[in-house]
Computed example of a mutant assay.
Amino acid sequence: MRATVFHGPGDVRVEEVDRPELTGPDDAIVRITHTAICGSDLWFYRGDSDRETPSRVGHEPMGIVEATGEDVRRVREGDRVFAPFAIGCGECQYCRAGLPTSCEHGESWSDHGGAQSEYVRVPHADGTLVRVPDRYADDERALEALLPLTDVMGTGHHAARSAGVDVGSECVVIGDGAVGLCGVLAARRLGAKRIVAVGHHEDRLALAEAFGADATVDGSTREDPIERVKELTHGGVDHAVECVGAASAMETAVGVCRPGGTVGYVGVPHGMDGGFPIFEFFTDNVTLQGGVAPVREYADDLMADVLGGTLDPSPIFTKTVPLDDIAEGYRAMDEREAIKVLVRV
Rank of each mutant, 00 (worst) to 15 (best):
C182G: 04
L311N: 07
G191D: 10
K340Q: 14
H234T: 01
Y119V: 00
R46F: 06
A159W: 06
E328W: 04
P84M: 02
F44C: 00
G47M: 00
I326Q: 04
R51L: 15
G156H: 04
L129N: 11
G154Y: 09
I316S: 05
S248K: 13
G180K: 09
W109T: 03
S110I: 07
C103F: 13
H59T: 01
H105L: 10
R74V: 03
R194L: 00
F82N: 05
R73H: 13
G39E: 11
H270E: 10
E70Y: 03
L146V: 10
E66I: 03
A145T: 01
A142Y: 06
G39N: 08
P100D: 14
L190P: 07
T53C: 10
E297H: 15
P315C: 11
A86F: 14
E52G: 12
S108M: 10
P123T: 02
L205G: 08
A86V: 12
L190T: 07
L129R: 11
R96G: 01
G90Y: 14
T23G: 07
V152W: 02
E335C: 01
Y330D: 04
E335Y: 00
P9C: 02
R46W: 10
L22K: 06
G261T: 11
G154I: 06
S108A: 06
G168S: 03
A145R: 13
V30H: 02
D71V: 04
V229W: 05
R13F: 08
P123D: 03
D166T: 15
C92V: 11
H124N: 13
E227C: 02
G177C: 07
R141S: 13
R188L: 07
D26W: 10
G308C: 03
V241P: 12
D71R: 14
A36N: 02
L323H: 08
E70A: 14
R80P: 05
S117F: 07
D41W: 13
L99M: 15
V241I: 15
D50Q: 08
L143W: 12
F281Q: 00
D151A: 01
D111R: 06
L143S: 08
F281D: 02
A142L: 06
L181G: 11
L99F: 15
F44H: 12
H124Q: 12
P259V: 08
E251I: 03
D41Q: 10
V266F: 12
V256G: 09
A240P: 01
H200R: 14
V341D: 09
P225W: 02
Q93T: 13
D151I: 04
I29S: 05
L207V: 02
L149V: 09
V132W: 11
E91A: 14
D300I: 05
T23P: 00
S40C: 10
I32S: 08
D284Q: 14
H200S: 13
F281M: 03
L185S: 10
